[in-house]
């Protein structure tokens, strides 16, 4: 029989852990990611290059559903505070449609990302950056803007992103448009100079033109985030189960038509120069 953990004891434990993080020495590279959905404000130095393969697994909708989103990113430091990236995007989906499983694999387009650092998370009260991304693909195009805030305090790393996206979807005879608002946040602690562990939260809401710009889905995800860094490479992993539906619940209080029950993302980063 399980003994319930008193909320006060749990909160005290979390607070003690967070305070302990303030006093652990850290030794990390700035361009590493501690979260896979939430960005930090760091940019590469001018002339530095990094390659990042991304893998996102999304599983289980109302029926069987498994999807791999694969992105290959090349990141370049262009100037002091300014970084640009180029992505190649691929998608593979296997899902149940009318009792049968169907799979498809598609080239999902290319993306161009631009990031400008406004403030440093150690030197300034907040780290901050502005981010823009343009994606063009055969079945979907997308324009994305993001405000990035973060803070490093001792061994504690916190980050918050506000993201707005406008998508053009070409899957039906008439182009559909979609607006997406996303809030992402993360809190992590250095357990050793190379290893961080923490929590990442993501809320994703969308409005569609085909439905008179009414909100279609809104879901909240939260789960563990781990990262590990060495001078020449790093890796970050987040597992995000959907924990609540805000709008459009289909099964058991979750949104399982526009979103999946679980998402997981793994990113590797390799410094080339």
């Amino acid at each position: 029989m399980k003994t319930p953990v008193p909320a006060l004891a749990l909160n005290t434990g979390l607070l003690a852990g967070a305070l302990a993080c303030l006093f652990i020495p850290t030794e990390a590279t700035a361009t590493e990611r501690h979260f896979t959905y939430t960005y930090g404000s760091a940019v590469l130095n001018r002339g530095d290059v990094e390659v990042e393969p991304w893998t996102t697994l999304r599983v289980e909708r109302s029926g069987f559903y498994a999807r791999f989103d694969q992105r290959l990113e090349v990141e370049v430091g262009l100037a002091e505070r300014l970084q640009s990236s180029w992505y190649l995007n691929l998608t593979a989906i296997n899902q149940e449609i009318e009792g049968a499983r169907a799979s498809k694999f598609e080239f999902a387009g290319v993306s161009s990302e631009w990031k400008y650092k406004l403030a440093d998370p150690v030197a300034d009260p907040f780290g901050a950056a502005l981010y823009g991304e343009l994606t063009a693909g055969p079945s979907e195009s997308e324009l994305e803007a993001k405000l990035i805030l973060d803070k490093h305090l001792g061994a504690l790393v916190a980050a918050f992103n506000l993201t707005a996206e406008h998508e053009w979807i070409y899957e039906s005879a008439e182009t559909e448009r979609e607006f997406v608002l996303e809030l992402d946040g993360g809190l992590a602690c250095f357990l050793s100079p190379a290893l961080t562990a923490g929590l990442e939260i993501r809320s994703h809401s969308d409005w569609e033109s085909a439905e008179g710009w009414g909100m279609q889905h809104s879901a909240l995800f939260a789960g563990p985030a781990l990262s590990y860094a060495q001078p020449a490479w790093w890796a970050a992993l987040t597992i995000l189960p959907q924990i609540a539906a805000i709008e459009g619940a289909t099964d058991g209080g979750l949104v399982l038509d526009g979103h999946e029950r679980v998402e997981a993302r793994l990113i590797f980063g390799v410094h080339l120069q």
Binding site: T29, A30, P121
Partner: peptide
């Protein structure tokens, strides 16, 4: 220090 060193590691 902020401009150049933060591009390689957390300050």
């Amino acid at each position: 220090y902020v401009a150049r060193c933060a591009g390689c590691h957390n300050l």
